[in-house]
Amino acid sequence: MSVSRRDFMAMGAAATAGAAIAPGIRLIELAQAKSPEEAVTAAQRWGLLIDTNKCNKGCTSCVDACHTENGIDHEQLKGSDATKPQWIRKVEVKDPNTGYEHSLPVMCQHCQEPPCVDVCPTGASFKRADGIVLVDRHICIGCRYCMMACPYKARSFEHEDITGQKEYAPRGKGTVESCTMCVHKVDRGDGTTACAEACAKEGHNAILFGDLNDPKSEIAQTVRSKATRRIREDLNLDNSVRYIGI
């Protein structure tokens, strides 16, 4: 392992700035963030908790933020809505018996027993040690069996050529992709995802990101004290995305 001089200076500068501005906060962040050369481990289990009571019908901030963050540009694409990538979508749910309506975002549920990983012939669909389910697009052959297997319609096949990708979110024609739980942000130690950030910015705070394995984290404390549910619990896939109010 070697750190370039520039990296070292930058790290030093950041550490000094952090210490000077808000030592307490910085310490917590340092405790969470892993260094770039460290492999992820099962010590963490990243998850999302979505409170549908706080989610506004008609608000698509999380979807927009996801698209901006990951370089998804529906305008650029030629296909129909059904062929464009849908990493996260807003679903409106109505109980026909009572008339009760609510709105919620649905993305990859990052199952710990993911059907997409089971069916993938090459192992391109995989679950990282910290629970994030990803597609290794270097070995994805575009067979789409994972999309057949996903109970949440969370995966999209890239139907056409793409340009203008972000350097941290490579995407291309002929392979399958889905929500990465902003893995580049997680690895950087941002401690949040684009959707959660955007939701908070709107003042809704309906999406909470965190480490389910860390008993002190807000998400772990909330799921311990409140009733939360997973979509299609009957399948018993142990999703890392939980909901309140469904």
Binding site: M1, S2, S4, D7, K34, P36, E37, E38, A39, V40, F126, R128, A129, D130, L134, D136, H138, E167, Y168, V183, D187, R188
Partner: peptide, 22 residues
Amino acid sequence: HRDKTVHQGIRTKQHSLKNCVN
């Protein structure tokens, strides 16, 4: 580097494609 980055989240700069391009 690609396998280590994608599967293990190891994001050192030295042999990363991003670094090559930059």
